[in-house]
Design a binder for these strands. Structure first.
Lengths: 147, 147
DNA sequence: TTCATTCATTTGATTAGTCAAGTGAATGGG
DNA sequence: CCCATTCACTTGACTAATCAAATGAATGAA
């Protein structure tokens, strides 16, 4: 028993870090009255707007259902609008949403960066980015069943 | 606008990978009638049992409330038992739980490892592990408010 | 024209987590 | 000896996701 592979140890570090940094990030974004998930979605909308729900779901790698619920919450807060257009719904930021994102943007990026900058050199960050890009792309090409 | 830092790009890769590999892992564990979170918890219990809920919560970096709910589900499935002892509850695996874990253990570890082995060399995996250990430890020492 | 198909989105049931307030047993100071 | 505190755990309200089934609008063949 108890024969952990190197891969499984990496996997554990990754999940623990992601979980922890998510909590800290939520804590940090409280001052802007946003959550990490909301920030992520608003970022994608701001970059690609106008776009449909399905396109957005693809970008943030969440299911159709997930994005539907998330947008319902964001719409209730008045940060985005959905316009029925043909049979699809087109999503864009409201002024309020854009402003909220602008407020948080720089601080949040700096916050995210600090996790790495505090303990890695420029060179090491470059290496980590290269390795994780490979790993992430590899995971993406493994198809999920439905979708 | 749109001035992404290297740190924020790493962060994005990490979260996307973790999310994707979690989905794939859930898919994979379906054959054993387990989820990734359940596997994680059962692993920790099997390694450290008998232990209290608070100790377990610490190990899997989840709140007291979170572990309480999770254990309620696992107990309902008959995979673990909670024994009231003094004022704490001691957790251990049932035979059914131990067997389920044993069934899945090797396959799941191999599955997790494959994400990395498929696209990195031995050397690169070693590097990735070192870097992520540093990053993860760094994130852990940033205190969350309550707790 | 109408009815079946397709496509985008929504919704119900569930898992998994958070925070914060609540509960209940054991302990310790006045 | 009793009452307040502490400790371990639970619970209510919520966010965020999943899958799968339902809905609803536009299209196209009979």
């Amino acid at each position: 028993m108890q024969k952990n592979t190197r891969g499984s140890l990496i996997w554990l570090r990754l999940t623990r870090f992601t979980h922890q940094s998510n909590l800290l990030s939520n804590e940090f974004l409280k001052q802007y009255d946003l959550t990490t998930a909301q920030f992520d979605v608003l970022m994608q909308i701001s970059t690609y707007e106008p776009l449909t729900q399905s396109e957005l779901a693809e970008k943030v790698t969440v299911t159709q259902g997930g994005i539907s619920r998330m947008l319902t919450r964001l719409e209730k807060e008045g940060l985005i609008v959905r316009k029925q257009e043909w049979k699809t719904k087109t999503i864009s930021l409201t002024d309020k949403g854009r402003q909220k994102l602008d407020n948080a943007f720089e601080a949040q990026l700096a916050f995210q960066s600090s996790f790495f900058e505090e303990c890695l050199s420029e060179e090491e960050m470059k290496t980590l980015y290269t390795l994780m890009s490979r790993v992430q792309r590899n995971s993406e090409k493994k198809e999920l069943p439905n979708r």
